[in-house]
């Protein structure tokens, strides 16, 4: 069910952009107004969610500990898997964001001859890693449309990623990898019954959306050529706040741009917010120092306490008479 809804939603978006540009001539709407609105919604949404999260107090340390805590000097501590300082917690978050280390612990539970067995399962880690890194490289490569002059690292990335050539033109490795990875991430949800059971439209829709964006981009690069200089004129107009709509860019470009705009606007209110959420996960970013530092719950109200010294002051004479030892006479 979720698959069909998401697929039709993405197809409808493609149709909207096509009808809007090819039949109604709304290039200004799809080329300028929507991208600006989407970017504003994207940034505002990210800030809103971060602020919302930051308003939740984190009274206690709740890191997931995956290794030996720092203890006695002769016990070897696992600083990354059980960080004791903010620096090692930061290293842990960085490794999590860059390499998805927690997914490396992924296992598959199965019944083998009537008993529960845990199997090696690294495909999700591999598929996820390839997908995210490809997406990052593709986004960075697109900076060639948004910068003038094009910075050196963008050209370097183009040369490394574009190492392969086919039919007299560059074939980006990341373009191939992202198609394979997204296809895998989709098939995984369909084929594995347990994963399919918990998959919602909110899981399928971003996959179809990103797949359509990648496909429309690859179509433009290899099959339906558009005027790339005109595309860059439009992009530069957007980032220098002097928008122009050059003539003669094909509808396929506006479909691509509209899908990206939808992705940006949809991003903060969906599961995709994990882009920033990963850095604010208390189970990852807190050092495990509950035994070394006192953490005071910020919403504690002042409690009237009766200390032992006060107790003794109150009952000293009675305690002495009853032969109960006191600390001060």
């Amino acid at each position: 069910m979720g698959i069909r809804v998401s697929l039709f939603a993405v197809l409808a978006l493609i149709l909207v952009a096509y009808v809007g540009v090819a039949l109604l001539g709304l290039e200004l709407l799809f080329g300028v107004i929507m991208p600006y609105a989407a970017m504003a919604a994207f940034l505002a949404g990210l800030v809103y969610h971060v602020i919302k999260w930051a308003r939740s107090p984190v009274p206690f340390r709740i890191p997931t500990t995956c290794g030996q805590q720092r203890a006695l000097p002769w016990i070897k501590a696992s600083e990354v898997d059980n960080p004791s300082t903010a620096v090692s917690a930061a290293a842990r978050v960085a490794l999590e964001a860059l390499l998805f280390r927690s997914l490396l612990r992924n296992t598959k539970a199965e019944l083998a001859d009537g008993s529960l067995a845990y199997r090696w399962e690294k495909w999700l880690w591999l598929g996820g890693l390839l997908f995210h890194w490809s997406l990052l490289v593709i986004v960075l490569r697109h900076l060639r449309f948004f910068t003038e002059p094009v910075p050196g690292f963008v050209n370097l990335l183009r040369d490394l990623d574009g190492f392969l050539h086919v039919n007299l033109q560059v074939l980006y490795i990341t373009d191939i990898v992202i198609l394979l990875a997204v296809t895998y991430l989709f098939l995984r949800r369909v084929v594995i019954p347990q994963v399919r059971y918990i998959s919602l439209p909110g899981d399928y829709f971003p996959l179809f959306l990103i797949l359509s964006i990648a496909l429309s981009g690859i179509l433009m690069a290899h099959f339906i050529r558009v005027d790339v200089v005109a595309v860059k004129e439009l992009a530069m107009g957007l980032v220098t706040f002097s928008p122009t709509v050059p003539e003669g860019i094909g509808a396929i470009f506006y479909i691509h741009l509209f899908l990206v705009s939808v992705l940006l606007a949809y991003f903060p209110s969906s599961k995709l917010i994990h882009m920033v959420g990963i850095f604010l996960s208390p189970t990852r970013n807190l050092p495990n120092d509950s035994r070394r530092r006192r953490h005071v719950n910020p919403w504690n109200y002042p409690v009237d306490v009766h200390t032992y010294e006060e107790y003794e002051d109150e009952f000293r004479e009675k305690m002495k008479k009853a032969d109960i030892p006191v600390e001060r006479y």
Partner: peptide
């Protein structure tokens, strides 16, 4: 963190700021 995030995401806007391309 927010400043770094917004800074990175708006890179094209400040990289080309004031330029007439």
């Amino acid at each position: 963190g927010l400043l770094v995030l917004i800074g990175l995401l708006t890179f094209p806007f400040w990289y080309n700021a004031g330029d007439v391309v």
